[in-house]
Design a protein around this nucleic acid. Structure first.
Lengths: 231, 231
DNA sequence: GACACCTTACCGACCGGTAAGTAACAATCC
DNA sequence: GGATTGTTACTTACCGGTCGGTAAGGTGTC
């Protein structure tokens, strides 16, 4: 019951236009902080209210319901995503250049929005049906796009022979984890982006077939592994 | 109140030793299925009970509490993890060979246990303090290990010059997403493992410095991105 | 007085978990 | 071999607590 921190000054009311948006933003940020630590379900509206220094119904003045907070996060992320897509859409050049641009942009985008993305990836299943479907469609499109670039690169001889789908999944998979470990690098975002781009692009550019059978025994070892594990 | 499916036959009781373990396993699997779709917090004990065709207290006969179900998943995964580590520990050869072995094993492991891993990555924060700490320590060790292999490879000239930490994070990051997209590949686990290993290892092996500045305008473009976004 | 902004007080639903009792069978006793 | 006892494996009924959300009203500004 004891208000620990009075974060939102309730003094200047009507006079300040834009104040409402400001408070909305503050509540949203505090909610995100809590979701980050305790998860969406694990955070109660009371906790959010307490963190903001207001009563619970005050939050309902700014948000329809609890999910509304998550929707705002969703919109915030997809807006960013579209901005990134926009930049990429105007990308020209060979497959290598386009893919590098994509990897760099995504890396930077993921570092910048890492607080949101942690929650986004964890709480995806909490989105409503509509958002989830829209999300899935957009993701399939994005995957297909990346795959197409890789296929073009292979066709033009820029990239070595490889399974384009697996490569695309690999690239996007790696990129989707950047937000997790980026805080633990002392490197600047730009450097990280370059390192990642190098890692992935060089991995596809190399001409000579990779030496797979370096270790002899292994290839057999795993035949069983993919079907059933032995004790 | 209507039992939809009577999954657990309650007829043969005392006579069958090992039956209890069997039922435990069944309850666990159903719980996992529900956690997968609705999340840990989003799944109630009643729902699990209903899915098993038993009453809620029946579950408490086999599990201490709800978290116990998560603990079982945690143990199941870490047991697998240790088995993989065991195999890797005996690995010999140059950095390239050892890293390939690691990537292959992890990929196969992640494909095999993908149902568990989805939940594992999502519900990590639901583990108790002790498990979380233990997990964090083990992960830091694993990261350090991978980084060391990469550093060795760079020192010996097998790998090109690169930031070993970023590379390690990248490798492990990519591997940790395999479970997510593996179901959407028509390739066999072994093939996927090879593709991923090729992608990552070739990306580190290439001798010549990667051509970073292909796109001119971009490098400046991102300076602002890492600090603050412009409208 | 209309409105924005916020409060206290409260609601029904549902949660994880438990108390108490019971059916089924095994082992033991006579 | 029939009654007794103990154990396992559940059941119904219920508990305290918390959840998301709301009703109703107060207060300051225009």
């Amino acid at each position: 019951m004891v208000r620990k921190s009075v974060a939102i000054k309730s003094v200047p009311r009507g006079g300040d236009p834009g104040r409402a948006d400001n408070i909305r933003q503050i509540i949203f940020e505090r909610a995100i902080d809590l979701f980050d630590v305790k998860g969406f379900r694990g955070t109660s509206m009371n906790e959010i209210a307490e963190a903001c220094g207001v009563s619970k119904p005050a939050i309902y003045h700014y948000f329809r319901n609890k999910s509304h907070l998550l929707e705002m996060l969703y919109e915030s992320i997809t807006a960013e995503f579209f901005r990134t897509m926009e930049k990429l859409a105007h990308s020209t050049g060979d497959a290598n250049a386009r893919l590098r641009r994509l990897i760099r942009l995504q890396t930077l985008h993921n570092i910048e929005n890492r607080r949101f993305l942690t929650i986004f990836w964890r709480e995806r299943h909490e989105f409503d049906e509509l958002s989830r479907t829209a999300l899935a469609i957009r993701e399939r499109e994005f995957e297909a796009w990346v795959m197409r670039i890789i296929e073009e690169g292979i066709a033009s001889g820029e990239f070595r022979q490889a399974d384009a789908r697996t490569a695309a999944f690999g690239v996007l998979g790696l990129l989707s984890t950047v937000h997790r470990w980026a805080p633990y690098t002392e490197r600047q975002p730009n450097e990280v982006a370059d390192e990642i781009a190098d890692l992935l692009l060089v991995g596809m550019t190399e001409e000579k077939a990779p030496e797979r059978r370096v270790m002899g025994e292994e290839t057999c070892d795993f035949q069983s592994c993919s079907k059933e594990k032995e004790s």
